[in-house]
Simulated scan of single mutants.
Amino acid sequence: MTDHVILGKGQIGSTVAAILAGRGERVRVLSRSGGPSTPGIEHVKVDARDAAALTAATKGADVIYNCANPAGYHQWADEWPPMFAAILAAAKAHGAGLVNTGNLYVYGPVTAPMTERTPLRSPGHKGRIRIKMWEDAMALHAAGDLRFTEARGSDYFGPGALADAMLGERIVRPVVEGKGVTVLGDPDAPHSFTYIPDVARALIRLGGDDRAWGRPWHVPTAPAASQRDMVDAMARLLGRGPVRVSRMPWWVLIRVVGLAQPAMKGMAETRHQWDGPYVMESHDFTDTFGDEPTPTDTALAETLDWWRARLA
């Protein structure tokens, strides 16, 4: 039986754990807060920035899924370097495969749909941090010190996605509550949104297939749709008429909201993702492994069900 170790118990890590446990696999979830273990899932409290502690906690791992993330953008520079170095050290020590949850920040502003062959040219601080993580891991992979791959998706949404997701507190909740929606950027620009259960299934697929190692993969993602399209689709699924969509100026987010929520200031670096088309392709994954993205209406319906249960 494969020994699966998951770093982080947010929406992605928790979904990976639930899927694996449902298959009868051995699962350990490591997080800073720990928690009570449940049938099929052992929870362990550990600080992923502590290389010695993390190496001890991951002993016996066959595959490590990194689903952890610093709490906010403003913490990336301080937390990612020691945390990812500790993760690499743990995977190397145990000879475990490492599947990293990535994103599209590494590409920076683009004018065409992104593929796994799009150059890593992000000029932004957060993008450069992600590029450095990728390069460090691939150097160890090339040297034969570990097996590494990364699953990259666009803005994640779905059950469990809250304030850290654009399709979360900011957009989905007001639609469910029958209110108008305020969005960032161009509400009509096509944008790729990646469904969290598709991310979890992709991570598991990559961790169990030798064809995955040594390159990035884009998570199967439904065709791009604008923020307004997603709002309209949710309203239709709820049996309601059109929802009012307004646009928040960037200066309000950065100067006003950013005072109370420092992490929001980091959104300025990624505004290109919302001010124009931001589209990714995931044909490589589907062509290689056969997995298709969840249809948008199905994903939105499941997301709405989760929100209605949460708000009830």
Score class of each variant (00 low, 15 high):
P197Q: 09
L162M: 12
V110L: 01
G97N: 02
M138S: 04
L146K: 01
N103Q: 03
G102L: 03
A142Q: 15
G102M: 04
R147A: 11
A165D: 06
D188F: 12
P174H: 06
S192N: 12
V199N: 00
D155G: 07
G127P: 05
G207P: 03
L98Y: 03
D209E: 12
K132T: 15
L120H: 11
V110R: 11
T149H: 09
V183K: 00
S154W: 02
R201S: 13
R152V: 02
E116I: 09
L104T: 15
R128P: 01
D145E: 15
P109M: 07
L98M: 05
D188G: 11
L120R: 14
A165Y: 14
G180F: 07
W213D: 01
V181N: 01
V199R: 00
E116C: 09
D209S: 09
N103V: 02
K179C: 10
I131Y: 01
A151Q: 00
M138W: 09
A112Q: 14
A165I: 05
R211K: 15
W134Y: 15
V181T: 11
N100S: 10
M133I: 15
I196A: 13
G207H: 05
M166S: 12
G102F: 04
G97C: 03
D136F: 09
K132F: 00
S122A: 14
D210G: 10
I196K: 01
L167E: 08
A212D: 10
I204M: 03
A143M: 04
S192H: 07
K132Y: 02
F193T: 10
A139N: 06
W134R: 09
M114E: 12
P119D: 13
G153D: 03
I131E: 03
M138L: 15
S192Q: 07
I129H: 02
Y107G: 01
S154F: 13
P174R: 05
D145L: 13
S192D: 11
R211Q: 13
A189L: 02
S154L: 11
P159L: 05
R205P: 00
R128V: 02
V176W: 08
M166K: 01
E150F: 07
A200N: 04
G168L: 09
G102T: 02
G97H: 05
K132M: 08
R205L: 11
W213I: 07
D186Q: 13
A165F: 10
P187L: 07
E177T: 13
P159I: 04
G185N: 11
G97F: 06
P187V: 13
